[in-house]
Computed example of a mutant assay.
Amino acid sequence: MNYLKQLQAFRDYQMFKTELSSGQIALYYALLQINNKCSWIEWFTAANQTLETLSGLSRSGINKNRNVLKQLGLVDFESNGNRKATSYKICVLYNEDSTHNSEHRSTHNSTHNSEHKGTHNSSTLIKQDRNINKTNKDSHDSKPAKRVYEPDDLNLKLANYLLTKIRERNSSIYPTDSKNPPDTQKWANDIRLMHERDARSYDDIKRIIGWCQQDSFWQNNILSASKLRKQFGKLIDKADAPNNFNGNKGGRKPLYDLPY
Rank of each mutant, 00 (worst) to 15 (best):
R229A: 13
G23L: 07
R169W: 11
S123P: 02
N48C: 10
E150A: 13
I173G: 02
K179Q: 07
Y13I: 03
T18L: 01
L57P: 12
L54W: 04
K238P: 06
S21Q: 10
P254K: 11
R252K: 15
A159C: 14
A9W: 11
S58I: 04
N244H: 08
T86A: 07
G250T: 02
P175N: 03
T45P: 11
Y202V: 06
D215I: 02
S22K: 14
D198R: 10
T176W: 05
N67E: 09
Q49M: 13
S87L: 12
S178R: 08
S102K: 14
K146I: 14
I132P: 00
A239F: 15
D237G: 04
Y161M: 14
D76K: 15
K137W: 07
K134P: 00
A199W: 05
S39C: 13
S171Y: 12
N220L: 08
K165R: 15
L69F: 14
K230R: 14
I191G: 05
S102W: 07
P181H: 06
R197I: 01
D240T: 04
S216Q: 12
S139H: 07
H108F: 15
T86F: 13
C38L: 09
F217I: 10
G247M: 15
I62F: 06
K134S: 11
N248W: 10
D152G: 01
L27I: 09
S110F: 13
I25S: 03
N189R: 13
H116S: 07
R11D: 04
P182G: 01
R200P: 13
K143S: 07
G73M: 10
G250W: 06
